[in-house]
């Protein structure tokens, strides 16, 4: 079947005015990249949820990293987009420009080589991402232990997707009629990983892939589900997502991490929504070594929180496109290419 057939199919069966939310940054990006919002009938409203791990990083966490660098001279090892996320007053990018050591790596294992090569300096590896990246970081942490590296610590900003979904649904700020289930996260947690959310809220839920055909097919299934009033939890991405997920990845993830509270931009602190280090890894846990309560200043004009919850569209933010652009992001949703504001801006929804 072609894209046009799915679109025609959707138009034929879609009657109600509905809100559908995606919870994965790659879906956000692909939906904008292919102009999928433009070819759907007007009664279907696609909303982007908190699906980009960089975008949900809180000001407090960025400020804490800056504090570690400025106060204790830790070298910071992190992944690409995080360095552009603004904290209260500056980003890691500013920190680096001021001469502090901030190293961007592509693979967490690089951190081990950096620490080994500079034994007289202490480093913190910042772990960020959802269920998709956490197993990889868990593997790195096991390696750090095995190799007995003493000058490399870890800060976990890892977050879990189902609790964020629950938080949005519990707030009730928007009425959601259907959910686009994140393809990548589902490869790890499986269809099974969503049963809890589905059973609690009984909203049609379709796990889908990332090609435009796959997204439109998934939306077709969602609309059908919504229209016939019989919500179900469907895996429409079977080539990558198994019922039980990736058990090996989950095993290594929970060998190193356990569930704990996490601070989400826009959603605040959510219990059991993050991954923190287990006690066996406490000697690597920078937060246990330097516990620090950070009082961050928030930019009152930045509407990333509302955008992440689907309450506002980026164009409703007073900063959007004026002072906040991908070149000079004021909020994290404009930083990552998977952020809603960035996708809006780059793909021309001015």
């Amino acid at each position: 079947m072609k894209v046009i057939d799915f679109v025609e199919g959707i138009k034929k069966i879609s009657k109600k005015k509905i809100n559908i939310m995606e919870f994965c940054g790659t879906h956000t990006h692909e939906i904008f990249r292919y102009g999928i919002r433009d070819i759907l009938p007007e009664n279907i409203n696609l909303l982007s949820g908190p699906g980009c791990p960089v975008c949900v990083t809180s000001e407090e966490d960025i400020d804490y990293i800056i504090f570690l660098s400025e106060k204790y001279n830790f070298g910071i090892i992190t992944f690409g987009d995080l360095i552009n996320v603004p904290g209260s007053s500056e980003s890691l990018n500013h920190l680096r420009a001021k001469g502090k050591e901030v190293i961007v790596v592509y693979s967490p294992l690089e951190a081990i080589n950096i620490a080994k090569g500079n034994k007289d300096k202490n480093y913190v590896l910042i772990g960020i991402g959802f269920e998709t990246t956490a197993p990889n970081l868990a593997y790195t942490l096991i390696k750090i232990k095995e190799e007995n590296i003493k000058n490399l610590y870890f800060l976990s900003l890892h977050k879990l997707t189902p609790p964020a979904m629950k938080a949005i649904l519990d707030r009730g700020e928007i009425r959601l009629d259907g959910i686009i289930g994140p393809g990548h996260v589902s490869t790890i947690i499986g269809r099974r990983g969503w049963e809890d959310v589905f059973n609690r809220y009984n909203i049609p839920f379709v796990i889908m892939g990332f090609k435009p055909e796959e997204i439109l097919y998934g939306i077709y299934l969602l609309v059908m589900n919504i229209e016939n009033g019989k919500p179900s939890l469907i895996n429409a991405y079977k080539k990558s997502v198994k019922e039980e997920g990736n058990e090996k990845a989950l095993e290594i993830m929970y060998k190193v991490f356990k569930k704990g509270s996490a601070h989400w931009r826009g959603l605040g602190i959510i219990e059991e929504s993050g991954l923190i280090l287990r006690d066996e890894f406490e000697d690597l846990d920078i937060k246990r070594i330097y516990p620090m309560k950070i009082e961050s200043k928030k930019n009152p004009l930045c509407k990333c929180g509302e955008v992440l919850r689907g309450v506002l569209k980026p164009i409703d933010c007073p900063l959007y496109g004026k002072v906040c652009t991908p070149e000079t992001p004021k909020g994290p949703c404009m930083v990552s290419s998977e952020g809603t504001c960035s996708a809006y801006y780059i793909y021309g929804r001015r």
Binding site: G35, I39, I346
Partner: peptide, 15 residues
């Protein structure tokens, strides 16, 4: 013009 027939702006690189 995307391969599914929609049309969108191709912006210059922003970062």
């Amino acid at each position: 013009k995307t391969r599914i027939g929609t049309k969108r702006i191709l912006d210059p690189l922003k970062k």
